[in-house]
Design a protein around this nucleic acid. Sequence first.
DNA 1: ACCTGAACACCGTTCAAGT
DNA 2: ACCTGAACACCGTTCAAGT
Lengths: 257, 257
Amino acid sequence: MAKTTRSSERSSQRRVDALTRERIVEAAIDLLDSQGEGGLTFRALAARLETGHGAIQWHIANKNELLQAAADAVISSAVTGVADGVTPPERIRGIALAVFDAIDAHPWVGTELSREPWQPAVLRIFEGVGGQLHALGVPQGARFDAASTLLNFILGLAGQYAAGARLIGHATDRQAFLADLAARWSDLDPARYPFAHQVAPQLRDHDDREQFLAGVDLILAGMTAPGYPGGGVPCPIRPAEGTTKTPDASAVNTPSA
Amino acid sequence: MAKTTRSSERSSQRRVDALTRERIVEAAIDLLDSQGEGGLTFRALAARLETGHGAIQWHIANKNELLQAAADAVISSAVTGVADGVTPPERIRGIALAVFDAIDAHPWVGTELSREPWQPAVLRIFEGVGGQLHALGVPQGARFDAASTLLNFILGLAGQYAAGARLIGHATDRQAFLADLAARWSDLDPARYPFAHQVAPQLRDHDDREQFLAGVDLILAGMTAPGYPGGGVPCPIRPAEGTTKTPDASAVNTPSA
DNA sequence: ACCTGAACACCGTTCAAGT
DNA sequence: ACCTGAACACCGTTCAAGT
């Protein structure tokens, strides 16, 4: 063992705070959390890591790569923590809520997710929800569309929620922000905006997290509804006992043709 | 009439190409369409309008306001063109597709919609879909959540689709882009990413517009599914005859308490 | 009221030069 | 291989000064 760790020994003989990709991403997350989305610049990052900004760009090519790496670190740890061994709809809800809570804690993640398609973090979410559709009873031909629907809903909320957080500071300001927005909706011409005018009171008092979960449930309900492909089968939101076990990879990958 | 048009006569006596908010927004849209999202700068706009960039910022305070105005102009004209007098689900589909097509023609609109919550353009979409929910049979208490779900789905796709368009040039490149992405999904470790690995072929051949419509239909199906509030009532996607007329504003605004 | 253009305070990225 | 720091080519925004 002493022999095999030669290279890691050598790296540990450098300055303890050697500049690594990992440390850069970590510092970027700290900076984004504490200073907001505008707070991440190569110069600020360089100051925090006590180096030049050119040094950072030797490890990470550009800002896009840095943001994707930071978002993936947050989403990866959020999705990994979701309880396993529950029913498929429960797992989908769990993943969705984990993403929501991650964005709530790190609003810049929401901006980043909705900014770049199919970045690693987005793929994780797609896989997380898509992997449950087989066990949920959605037929092979409809799974891609169904997963895409859930993903786009999650990303849509991610963007909106992040934008809201960007606008207001946090928590307490939210009440005032919603009250102000609800007042503006209430003042809208009922002839031109009857719906917005009508739901203004609900806007003021609603809980984003609950509304998000309601959206997930609505889409889950649609997947098993009569009229949707694969819907109408004797499989309500909760699958029949005995089918809740997550199928192994080989079963999932059985070609459908 | 000659007397009442005095002020408009006076303004028409100015240079024909007087700098107005309208002309600025129009030029901004042209610039965004032709040069892409990065093409809109106050300097480029000033050059095109043959003035200084300070002059523009006298009419429009900042870039955010300019982008919102441009997006609203596009969405407004798109939503206005949707056929009236059809069934509620048909109208929701029509509005959703109008938004999709507008983003397809002006990808920067997708970026802008997903960037800022409750800007005028977003409110138009929200009203457009939300206004159909009553006639669709969604009970009062569930309408806000339902409209929000549809809206977030649309905005999620808006952001992703715009990001895709930002990445690739247009049309023909799309085939290559999807083929490349599908190949990468296919190469993913089936043990870690079974779902993405499995749907890779579908990703390569899918049509974004059809998938978008499938998502709208899935959510519509959920609204009338058993298990969802108001679902299970004898009201399939198409409401019973005689209830399809859009209720007038006073009926819609009846307080529910 | 409307427009000008210089000045300010930033950005991300590049790159020759060092160790 | 890894890091430095100056230089480049931009931004949006502000603002005293004009007409």
